[in-house]
Write a protein that binds this DNA or RNA. Structure first.
Lengths: 116, 116
DNA sequence: TTAGCATCTATGAAGACTTGCAGATACTAT
DNA sequence: ATAGTATCTGCAAGTCTTCATAGATGCTAA
């Protein structure tokens, strides 16, 4: 039971572990968007946008509302934004991802120093 | 730049997208723990615990403190707990993962109903 | 009905993650 | 130095994710 809860939380975070999906959620702060709008705003194929939205949909993180031939997406629970805000706070505390960020900045620099 | 931030957030969430890693973090609310304690508490191989801790370490989510032959782990920034709390809130709102949870409960039940 | 647009789903290839296990490293005690 | 314990890293097989492409579905307008 305890384990199962951890699994569900893990699955939830997994749904957030994709750059496009994060970007989409951030953009949905402003209100609902269609697949087409999302695909244009982030310069990805409509099919790709739809795929990633399906991931969020399957976890009930976003809700789809069909109107005519368009589908409008919005977040199911605005608490998700609070989650993103806390994540941002953690970044601002300069405590998370420091190593990763530095590695990214000195991108591909052939540093080969002692391992420990 | 905007994209890069999304990528880092995504990487951060990806580090949380694993049942054992979530369980470990939850347990670290109580204070620091050694690899050995963690491996016993969750009935996994020490190597496995160490591997998952390495993932959290690489994102600076946890910090290792070596004392004698033991390594004590603790969270780098307690804000992470707030993140987990918000995630719990979202679950309690019955708004996230409902479909997934139901599927899990009626596990493997050969239901084949209309898709929409 | 037909054409066109919006969206979804199926498929496959490339890459990433998980898991268990074996071996390496580090510390402690003898 | 040797043995024992704690932890870490490397590797391989199996699994999952991503991304692009192609085709399917649904709606709208003529």
């Amino acid at each position: 039971m305890r384990q199962k809860l951890s699994s569900f939380k893990a699955e939830f975070f997994k749904a957030l572990s994709h750059p496009l999906r994060i970007s989409i959620l951030d953009e949905l702060r402003e209100g609902e968007l269609t697949v087409n709008e999302i695909s244009q705003k982030f310069a990805v194929e409509p099919a790709n946008a739809s795929q990633q939205l399906a991931v969020l949909r399957n976890k009930n993180i976003v809700t789809a509302r069909k109107e005519g031939s368009n589908v409008y997406y919005s977040v199911t629970d605005k608490t998700v934004f609070k989650l993103l805000d806390v994540a941002r706070d953690i970044f601002n505390n300069h405590l998370i991802g420091v190593r990763s960020i530095l590695e990214e900045i000195h991108l591909e620099q052939p540093q080969k120093k002692a391992r420990r």
